[in-house]
Design a protein around this nucleic acid. Sequence first.
DNA 1: GGGGAATGTGTACGGTGTACGCTACGGCGA
DNA 2: TCGCCGTAGCGTACACCGTACACATTCCCC
Lengths: 232, 232
Amino acid sequence: MTVEHGREVESAGTGRRRRGSLTREAILDAAERVVGAGGGELTVRAVAAELEASPMALYRYFGTKDELLEALLDRVLGRVRTGPESADWVEDLRAFARAHREVLAAHPWAVTALFAHAVPGLNAVQLGEVALAILARGGIHGEAAVAAFSAVVAMNYGWCAFASARDTPSTAGGPASDLAPALAALPVEHFPLTVAAAGPLARYGAPEQYELALDRLVAGIAERGDLSSPRP
Amino acid sequence: MTVEHGREVESAGTGRRRRGSLTREAILDAAERVVGAGGGELTVRAVAAELEASPMALYRYFGTKDELLEALLDRVLGRVRTGPESADWVEDLRAFARAHREVLAAHPWAVTALFAHAVPGLNAVQLGEVALAILARGGIHGEAAVAAFSAVVAMNYGWCAFASARDTPSTAGGPASDLAPALAALPVEHFPLTVAAAGPLARYGAPEQYELALDRLVAGIAERGDLSSPRP
DNA sequence: GGGGAATGTGTACGGTGTACGCTACGGCGA
DNA sequence: TCGCCGTAGCGTACACCGTACACATTCCCC
């Protein structure tokens, strides 16, 4: 540990970080460590502590906390593995969606944060390009392609937000895990269907259900194709 | 104004609110006023100021700011107008989704907030019941129904989050409105499709595109129906 | 070796949510 | 009518947040 966090080793006396030992990458690493393990909240002070640096040191590299967050988000989005294309564009679209979802699911903290940022980073643009390429192979272009792409991404975001919200044991003890009995205990005369489907409802973010949902959406996209779409 | 905010009229001398003039409803009203007009941020102090009360006064009615937010969100969700059912369950499903989306679009601040709360309020459950009823009329039950419902809701959330993020002139000046030229200015050799679709992409949250996306999703749900779904 | 730019830090300010104890109001029994 | 007392509303205070600003240090280059 004294090797990893090397301040007290490399320059034990001064209590000051070595010049140049701080980089945007190092800061992003620290930020991810903070926010990743244990679900700690992303605060400038926490990241600085992780680096054993002063909070203000970060401001040499990121003008603002928001800017740091933005960089962090685009970095995460860069992890989406867009596989090689196959002969079946529909299956490729599904694979794209799954890969996207996997990354979001692996970084639950990123999901909510991604909403606040209207301006997509470069990696987000890159993902869009890949998706548009897949859709183009299905003969879908222009407005319809953008709508289809947006639909997939929107569903993934919404889905992961719910799923991670459900899975986090937030509010100390996780009432979400007790959701099934809570639903089943509702007055049957008012919520008959909810009570009947309490089981599946309690697993509302589960992967099997995601497969079903994705299947529906992709089927709709494939079937409707570029109907009512102006070709560019 | 001196009539609406009645403290200085009703009990001018003391600078203290009349006993019993504070209620959960009044607080929620104030909170909505704060967060609604001008997009002010929801802070306990701001709500208290709106009520001309002390911040701490609110804590008699809501244990925590989060609890207040939760109540506010469920109240908003209660505004979804679930129309009468028609003969066409598919059209009803579309109408449900549109109504849900409209409410979210009308309360952009609620969208991001709704993600953090895993436990659905009563109104959320009520919406689920309505959606399950529509799907049941299409012969869709159990896991498939939950997946379909979740898909619609997830897409709505994701969609509205993007749309509102794009439409808010955040970061002072709204670079989002300049998104089209920014996309068009990308290197064509790396992002040919993105550049070609810059126009539609810049309108990525627009209502016309939502109709296209919703159409795809609903088509998929209607077509696939309860395939691969265990009946309860 | 010495100067100067670049890097990391300390201090401080205005904001947040909220714990704790007090004040004063208004309905109650006498 | 009077006084009591539960409680609604309040004031103060604390820990934490993002970050402006001026300062100390360090390294590079001449």
